[in-house]
């Protein structure tokens, strides 16, 4: 293919955008609507997952050891536990640290009356998990170990967070499926309009000896351009809506600020922007290929 032919096809792709304004507008609007819904849903789900993840990270399993267990023995258990896949982080709290923390929190100056550490056997390991649903596996393992006096865990937190994760997964799959079906329906309608507009043009080009590539290329460029525009518009809208929304929620529900930890826009858009553009370009590309293919057998 000549380079001039490539630029001609590219130029025709651009010109087609204005030649068929209504078709362009309808196509861009369709892709924009689909990707706006997708982006909004993505932002909500990602933030929800982030909130659940933050909550999960605060949940730990605390292990207390039998009386007389030395610090070296505890640290060797810590080393052993750090090898396990479900373990993200282990914090060792010595008896002195435990007493100091207790004093600071609850006793203040009244602590002076204690000459010995009443929490002498309270050295413990606080284990933070990668995945809260694996808590029970870890607890079972810990309870089977020698020298363990008690294992503290929150079953309610684990069950609730595991349930929330499962719910997010099911709802995500459901909404993605619905969005996909709606997108296919809207895009197939738009493509049908496109076919009626372009049928004559494709026929003429075929009659004068255009190859399938030559006929298809301007339409594909046009489709890709529509896809790019159709994906950039919702991204810009979402950018402003997202910033406004998290600002509003943070202000309105400030007492829940410890729980409602929203992701910054940059983190959302670093994934959403390339994903949306890729989907937009993909829809535009496939839409135009399908539109033209039906008429190439002239």
């Amino acid at each position: 293919m000549r380079i001039s032919t490539f630029f001609y096809c590219l130029g025709q792709g651009f010109k087609n955008l204005t030649r068929n304004r209504w078709y362009t507008l309808a196509s861009v609007a369709t892709i924009t609507a689909c990707l706006f819904l997708f982006g909004m849903f993505y932002a909500i789900v990602t933030n929800f997952q982030h909130i659940v993840k933050t909550a999960e990270e605060g949940v730990s399993v605390t292990v207390f050891f039998n009386e007389g267990t030395t610090e070296d023995q505890i640290l060797s258990v810590k080393n052993l536990l750090e090898q396990r896949v479900e373990v993200r982080e282990i914090v060792y709290l010595s008896a002195e640290d435990a007493w100091n923390s207790f004093k600071d929190q609850y006793l203040g100056e009244y602590a002076d009356g204690f000459t010995e550490n009443p929490l002498a056997d309270s050295a413990n390991l606080q284990i933070y998990l990668n995945d809260i649903s694996m808590q029970q596996d870890l607890v079972t393992y810990l309870e089977s170990m020698d020298g363990i006096r008690r294992v503290n865990r929150s079953e309610v937190a684990a069950t609730t967070l595991t349930g929330a994760n499962r719910l997010i997964a099911i709802v995500s799959a459901g909404i993605i499926l619905i969005l996909l079906l709606v997108s296919i329906f809207l895009i197939s309608n738009t493509v049908t309009i496109g076919i009626s507009v372009r049928k004559e043009e494709i026929n003429i080009m075929k009659y004068i000896g255009a190859t399938d590539f030559f006929v298809r290329a301007p339409f594909v460029f046009e489709g890709v351009l529509i896809g790019v525009i159709g994906s950039l518009v919702p991204l810009v809208i979402l950018f402003f809506v997202y910033r406004q929304a998290i600002g509003y929620v943070a202000e309105r529900f400030s007492m829940l600020s410890a729980i409602l930890q929203f992701l910054p826009w940059s983190e959302i858009f670093s994934t959403l922007a390339p994903l949306s553009i890729a989907i937009g370009v993909g829809i535009g590309f496939l839409g135009s290929i399908v539109t033209v293919r039906r008429h190439l057998r002239v």
């Binding site: 293919m1 001039s4 030649r19 004559e200 003429i204 080009m205 009659y207 255009a210 190859t211 030559f214």
Partner: peptide
């Protein structure tokens, strides 16, 4: 069977572009 959104020159030139004649 002319392309109604293009002028006379563009309609005729299309046949040449199809066979990749230099501009």
């Amino acid at each position: 069977r002319l392309l109604e959104d293009r002028n006379v020159y563009e309609n005729v030139a299309l046949a040449q572009r199809v066979v990749q004649v230099p501009a």
